[in-house]
Design a protein around this nucleic acid. Sequence first.
DNA 1: CGAATTAGATAGACGGTCTAACAAATGGGA
DNA 2: TCCCATTTGTTAGACCGTCTATCTAATTCG
Lengths: 391, 391
Amino acid sequence: MLPRVNSAAIRRLNMVRVFHALRENPSCAQRDLSRLTGLDKATTSTIVAQMIEEGLVERTEAPRARRIGRPETALGIAPSAGLLVGARLEPGTIRIVTTTLAGTVVKQSQIPGSTDLAAALRQLHEGIDAVVAASRPEGGTAPPLRGIGIGIPALMDREGRLVLAPNLGWRDTPIRPLLEEALGAPVHVDNDTKAAAMAERLFGACRGVEDFVYLTGHSGVGGGLFLGGRLYRGAQGFAGEIGHLTVVPGGRPCGCGKRGCLETYVSETSILAQAGERGRALPDLWAAAAAARDGDPVLRTLLEEAGSHLGFALSHLVNLTNPGLVVLGGNLSIVAEFILPALNATLDEHALGPLRRDLRLLVSPLGPDAVPMGGIALAMDGFLSVPSPIL
Amino acid sequence: MLPRVNSAAIRRLNMVRVFHALRENPSCAQRDLSRLTGLDKATTSTIVAQMIEEGLVERTEAPRARRIGRPETALGIAPSAGLLVGARLEPGTIRIVTTTLAGTVVKQSQIPGSTDLAAALRQLHEGIDAVVAASRPEGGTAPPLRGIGIGIPALMDREGRLVLAPNLGWRDTPIRPLLEEALGAPVHVDNDTKAAAMAERLFGACRGVEDFVYLTGHSGVGGGLFLGGRLYRGAQGFAGEIGHLTVVPGGRPCGCGKRGCLETYVSETSILAQAGERGRALPDLWAAAAAARDGDPVLRTLLEEAGSHLGFALSHLVNLTNPGLVVLGGNLSIVAEFILPALNATLDEHALGPLRRDLRLLVSPLGPDAVPMGGIALAMDGFLSVPSPIL
DNA sequence: CGAATTAGATAGACGGTCTAACAAATGGGA
DNA sequence: TCCCATTTGTTAGACCGTCTATCTAATTCG
């Protein structure tokens, strides 16, 4: 049965529009919100009144530019309206961040991770409780916890069930229900790359962009597809697995059981492994970037090869989905300057002309913070959700 | 400025829902429409009344199964409500079909095509006028022409501008405005494969499926991506160009200027060319299928190779977009039985396990009629359009 | 032939957005 | 100093949705 579409759904949709307009334009006035959302100023007035009533919005005291006529009254999303939690769960570490509903960071923390499922969930639970407690203001009333979003390097299905996480050694675990019961707030769990793509869309380089692809590479290589104004998850929730495109038939063995997958050439793990094989033991990608910057020919060649492989896989993605923008994020942004030339050349070679011509490539401004902020984006999206089929 | 969402938009959305429910369930009653759409029966009543008022719907005299209580009154989309035109424009031929608003075929015709732009558009214009005239009932009033949809083997941008059509030799032509002016009805022009995918969704194997991929191969190989309940066109409108994925680096030269593109191995044109190179001159894919069916080892091997290449490219598409269903249509359906074994094997080899596991593969039931019926689907979609951001 | 049953229509509540008029707050100029 | 033009924001009412509740219509069953 489809969800019903009635007056209440309209209000919800328009309220979400006003919210995002205000989030992206802090301290703007109702007048501006009308213009931004296309709603009549009368409608904007009642919506803003309702949001103030609910404590979501407050009038701020920003003396606006002096013009003739009645001065505007600036509005803002109330910091006390609520708290969002974003987390990035990795085998070694768990990073947690809290923000206001507007996405302004309040507190951050980093705690050890674990590959033991129960232990990791417990640590996550305790870590979130601690950060949330620390995010509460000294004297005033505590803003309510509105939602929690978590990015995990795993195949996650559309119901928040972890299907497969090679690096964590987990499979078939109903992560979301487990956490929701433990944490007592709405929990959204998704693949880390999809979360990061959402962050890029709400807070980063892709604000207002309707069709883009986000690429990142840590232990694997992931792709987040934002298509037609929505994060695209696919039939089961597994879309975006660019890391397992075969780029070298019969090539390096991959953890997925196949050979020649992109991520055996381009992820941080595999780049460091290849560097080791070529006599360069390096601790991380920053060291690899430093070596390349110093002119080490081994690293230069290695990163050039990585760029070429990534460009080849990306050409497939471009030919298939025709994004207008590709963002290199996560660890890929660390070595972006060394992989981009080969990546661009390979793209020129393998992507169709008209699709290649209007394709922009950017390096993520969010960098390694993208995943926890992606958790925030998931939580915000959940808090502001509009019942389908409206969007 | 975003389109406004108000009561009228809700009515529009719900009317479209009722329309499609009635289209997919002919001769059903208001009661059924309520259940199908989730709308209250009172709402359904007023919507149906409005549609009868506008002439879109009529009460039909279908004696329903006898049950206790007041009998249902069967409803149907009025054949006189309007006419839709679908066309497939190819270098050699133009196929035109007219249907009722419900998608029931009224007339079909086939006329010669042309690679001369002006000539082709004139022929199309005249052909459509003729078929529309022939579709008018003898005595009664003529149903109004509600829309025209055309599928062309070309890169079409989102405004209906033809950007590049290698097989026709056209580029940068504002096809849609030209035709709309000439034909005096709403015209929708899109890539032939995208049109066929829409046909598959509305009339074929993908009814009710939210995420699927349609594949076809004539002079090239095309893919239609239907993602998240919508035909996905990409940032510029060029999404789905699976035919130009590089499957054999440095392989056969392609019309796009690159080498080793999928469509140099799998399209009808290239299969026949390869058969010729191997000493088997064949007129078309039916002959190729016949030869393979007779056990010709050359054709068997050739089609097996084609299946393998197609499976390889498809594995990329599967890993990236995680469709739940892949449909082989157009000319690919002619040789489907000979390419499917290798295609499946290659998919097993290169698609990620969880994505492969729940992937269904079907051969199109619409076959070569998919493109003109895709024109119908485009026209119907246009006639029933709901202003974004609803849907 | 009346009661039960089911389909469909109608009245009214409720809640949206929009238009239009109004109130509020400021700068500019006589 | 005072009045007015100008701009922002609010409010009343029209209009249009869907939904609940009730009513009417048409049939079967006993």
